[in-house]
Amino acid sequence: MAFVLDFEKPIVELEKKIEELKAAAEAGNIELEDEIKRLTQKVEKLRKEIYQNLTRWQRVQLARHPDRPYTLDYISQIFTDWVEFHGDRLFADDPAVVAGFAKLDGETFTIVGHQKGRTTKEKLERNFGMPHPEGYRKAMRIMKLGAKFGRPVISFVDTPGAFPGIGAEERGQALAIAENIRDMAVLPVPIIVVVTGEGGSGGALAIGVGDVVLMLEHAIYSVISPEGCASILWRDAKYAPDAAEALKLTAPDLLELGVIDEIIPEPPGGAHRDLKLTAERIKKAIKKHYSRLKKVSPDKLIRKRIEKYGKMGIYKEE
C-alpha cells in the first residue's frame, strides 16, 4: 500500500508483522503457525473494530484515499469493449470527465464519470477530478448520443466539486450543471448512478441524477466540503472533522435521508484494499437494478424520476 491513513496504521503494522513471521517461518523452517494464526485473528478483530466505528471524518479520508480506485479502474474491471469519446463539440475536451460506451453481459451501456489522476502529472492533467463546464457538456452529449440508440447510462461519481476558476465561470459552470440536471431528469433510458468516492456538491449532481443511486460504503456525498463548511461556521478549515459530523455526509446518512437507494459494502479495509472484489460487487448491483429498470417504459422512467426528486426534502406545514 502506497499510502497509509492514521487509523489504518495499527492494521498495516500487524499485517507487516504477519508477513515477516511467514517469511521467517519459511526461511528457517520454524514452527510459527500458532503465532501467525493468533495475529491473523487479532488483525481481523482490530479491522472490524476500527471499520465498524469509523467517524464521519475518517470516512471522508477513506473516500479521498490516494489509492482509492477511480472510474477508469472500475470500467476496466466491470465492462469490456470500452471506447472513450472526447470533447463537448463547443470548446474543449475535459480530462476530469470520461465518457464513452462499453459492454456488460453483451449489452452496451453509456458510461460517464469523474476521473481523478493517480500520479502528480495525471492529477494535474485530470485537474484533481474537478470538471470545467466542457466536462459536463461532454457527459451530457454522450448520454444523449447513447439514448438515441436506447443505451442505458451508468454514471460514476467521484469529484471534490466543479472547478472554481475564471475560465469555468466565463464558460458557464452554473449553466452547464443546471442543464445537465434538467436534461438527465428526462433522458429516456435507465440511469444508474454509483457514488464511488467523493460526491462533491453540484459538481457531483451534474452527472448524478438517476433512477437508482448507489453508494459505496465509505463514499461521501455532501452539499459542501467539510473544509468549506468549517471555514464558514468556525472561520477555520481545521474544524473540518466537526463539519463532517454536522453535515451527515456518509452513505448510511444518505440512505436514511432517502437520497440514495442502496449501499454497496466495501471489502475489509476499504475499496483500495481489493479493487476486484469492490468492482464485482458494483457489477452485481448494477445488473440487479438494470434487470428491473430495463422493463420500465421510458415515459414511466421519466415520470418516476421527476417524482422521486420532487419528494426529497424535509419541511413542515404550519
Binding site: 450543471i177 443546471a178 440536471i181 434538467r182 431528469a185 428526462v186 456538491s201 453540484g202 449532481l205 441524477v209 456525498y221 455532501s222 452539499v223 459542501i224 463548511c229 464558514i232 461556521l233 453535515l247 451527515k248 455526509l249 446518512d253 444518505l254 435521508l257 437520497v259 424520476r305 421527476i306 426528486y309 420532487g310 426529497m312 426534502g313 424535509i314
Partner: peptide, 18 residues
C-alpha cells in the same frame, strides 16, 4: 444551497430543475 440542511438542500437543485 443551504448548508444547514445538508444533502437535502443539494437535492432541491434536482427537484426544481427536473
Amino acid at each position: 444551497a443551504r448548508m444547514q440542511e445538508g444533502i437535502l438542500s443539494l437535492m432541491q437543485m434536482a427537484k426544481t430543475a427536473s
